[in-house]
Structure formats: structure tokens, C-alpha cells
């Protein structure tokens, strides 16, 4: 019965002969395919087709004002000897670097902080439900709202962070957090860490709560130092859950748009691949070139996803019972 997850496309004719071959199982497979059809059609319409068109547009000189009227330009949007193309655009490479830097720093911070929060919430203490509810609040707040709330707190003239920093003597003068090239990326990372550490913490906590408690009892009876217990027992056991959370967060960070668009708008210091692609596509109306950037982002994320699935042996889409 248990078929390994096979990577061939669904073939209705062959599917009929699958299962036990009885009239009932054939009827089940028939209706299963019928049940799947609407979902598959809608998913193709909203995901497959637009993706195919975006990739197609990346080989054209289409413009947003007249999207139906375009010519085929080959790989000119990616590379050409005349004006360079995407691959020789320094701004694009800045956006690539910003995205990778943002992803690496924010996901690392979120993992460490998320682990600390998860460990704290894994201890039984009175009022644990309240603390867990409190950390769900940043997760529940819409990204745009988070960006505006922090934008106000980080305001250069009237922000409470500058006020607090100067009152406590930590800051000599007000800092233009979101506008200054030195701090803009830092501001974005702070807000992202605030917003998504709860997600990380909850996923790690779910992993922690599945661990057997007897190893801990044994370690405690033997008087092993808690820090040693963490690195020798907890971390290896919870590692798979942490890795899944890290991969989800990293793939999410690589496509970040909302937060940066609202907090620092089109500033070159924080521009990521998504922000760059949308600016070309919508602000500059250059659908061909913007689609080329979108396609590159898609390829980068697809390559990283494939790499993590193969290298990390993360089992995705395993066979249902």
C-alpha cells in the first residue's frame, strides 16, 4: 500500500489501476481526482500561470502602461553589451547583498532569542499562559502596523527611543534611525526580530514539549550542570524542529517586502530584491526588467529550497498513510 512519494505527474489512467483494484477503490480514486480538480485549477490560475507569464515577460520589453504590447528581446534584460542588464546593475547586487545580510542577521537573532523564549516558556511557572499570550501579540499585529508603530517609536525628532536613550544617557544626540545609512538596516532588523521571534519561539517550544522528560530527570539526578544539559541533550534532540523553523523563516525573509517598503521606503540602504523588483515593475513601469528581477529572486529561492531539501534531508510531502 505505502507508496513512496513519487515525483511523476498525476496520471489519471494509471491512477485507476492503483489501490486495491476493487470497484470501491476505483470509485474512490475517480472521485478523489474530481475533488482535486477545482483546487488544482484555481492554484494553476493564481500561481502557475502568473509565474509562467512573469518568466515570459522577463524576455520582453513590456511596460506597465500597455502590458499587451511588447516585443521579444531575448536575454537583454538579464545581460546585454549595450546597457548591461540586470546582472551588471550595481543596484541589483546591492539589493541581493541587503537581502542576504538581512536574512542572515535577522534569522540568526530570531533563532537565538526564540530559543531563549522557548526554554523560558517550557518551564512550568504561575502565569505562563499570560506570557505566552503576550508574545503572541507581535505575531498578531499586521506587518504594516508594526512598521508604522516602530516608525513612530524610532522617529528622529519625536520618537520615544531617542527620548529614552538621551534621558538614560545612552545617546548623545537624536539618531535618525530609519533614514541614516548606518542605522536603517539595523532598524529594519530590530522590527523584524520583534515581529517574528514569537513564531520561532512557538515552533521551538512545540519541539521542546515533544522531548522525553526521562533524559532530564537522569541528568538532574546525576547533577549535570543545566548549561551542559542544554548543549548535550536538549539542543541535539530539538535540532530538527529548530532547523525546520529556521528554513521557513529564512525563505520568508528572502522575499521580505512590506516592512522595508513602509519603514524605509525605497531607500538604497535597505532595498531588498522584492523591493527592487517592484520598484522597476510599478514605479518605473518597466515590466520586462522588473520581471527579470522577479525571476532571479524566484530562481534564487527555488535553488535554496531544493538545496535545503536535498542536503538537510528535511522530509517534505512524505507519503500519507
Amino acid at each position: 500500500m505505502a507508496e513512496a512519494a513519487n515525483l511523476h505527474a498525476a496520471a489519471p489512467e494509471r491512477a485507476r489501476t492503483g489501490g486495491e483494484g476493487s470497484e470501491l477503490s476505483r470509485a474512490k480514486v475517480r472521485s478523489a481526482l474530481l475533488f482535486l480538480a477545482p483546487m488544482v485549477v484555481v492554484l494553476f490560475l493564481v500561481a502557475g500561470w502568473p509565474l509562467i507569464r512573469t518568466i515570459w515577460f522577463s524576455f520582453t520589453d513590456a511596460s506597465l502602461s500597455d502590458i499587451g504590447n511588447y516585443g521579444f528581446v531575448g536575454v537583454d534584460n538579464f545581460y546585454n553589451s549595450e546597457w548591461g542588464g540586470l546582472l551588471s546593475d550595481a543596484n541589483w547586487w546591492t539589493a541581493v547583498w541587503n537581502t542576504l545580510y538581512f536574512t542572515f542577521v535577522s534569522v540568526s537573532l530570531e533563532t537565538v532569542l526564540g530559543m531563549i523564549v522557548a526554554l523560558a516558556l517550557n518551564v512550568k511557572f504561575p502565569g505562563r499562559g499570560w506570557v505566552r499570550a503576550a508574545i503572541l501579540i507581535p505575531w498578531a499585529i499586521p506587518t504594516i502596523v508594526s512598521a508604522k508603530m516602530w516608525g513612530w517609536m524610532l522617529h528622529d525628532q519625536f520618537g520615544m527611543l531617542n527620548d529614552l536613550g538621551m534621558t538614560l544617557g545612552l545617546l548623545a544626540e537624536p539618531v535618525a534611525w530609519t533614514a541614516s545609512p548606518d542605522t536603517a538596516m539595523l532598524a529594519v532588523i530590530i522590527v523584524d526580530v520583534w515581529k517574528t521571534t514569537p513564531f520561532m519561539a512557538l515552533l521551538i517550544l512545540a519541539g521542546l514539549q515533544m522531548l522525553p522528560s526521562d533524559c532530564y530527570e537522569a541528568a538532574r539526578v546525576d547533577g549535570v550542570h543545566p548549561v551542559r544539559v542544554f548543549f548535550k541533550v536538549t539542543l541535539p534532540l530539538v535540532y530538527p524542529a529548530v532547523m525546520v523553523a529556521v528554513i521557513f523563516r529564512a525563505l520568508d525573509s528572502l522575499r521580505i517586502f512590506d516592512l522595508i517598503y513602509v519603514l524605509t521606503s525605497n531607500s538604497q540602504d535597505t532595498m531588498t530584491m522584492s523591493v527592487y523588483a517592484r520598484q522597476q515593475l510599478v514605479d518605473f513601469q518597466d515590466v520586462g526588467y522588473g520581471s527579470a528581477a522577479s525571476t532571479m529572486l524566484f530562481l534564487i529561492i527555488a535553488a535554496l529550497t531544493l538545496a535545503t531539501i536535498t542536503i538537510g534531508k528535511v522530509k517534505l510531502g512524505g507519503d500519507p498513510r
Partner: peptide, 19 residues
């Protein structure tokens, strides 16, 4: 309906579709 087909019925290509 899709989850019923993917979760309760065995057919070829199910793993690929989920992926």
C-alpha cells in the same frame, strides 16, 4: 475536498502534488 483526496485516497502522483 482536496485534503480529502490527498489525505484519504491512494493514487499515483499524490506526493508530487503535495510537494
Amino acid at each position: 475536498t482536496a485534503a480529502f483526496a490527498l489525505g484519504r485516497v491512494h493514487f499515483r502522483g499524490r506526493g508530487a502534488l503535495l510537494l
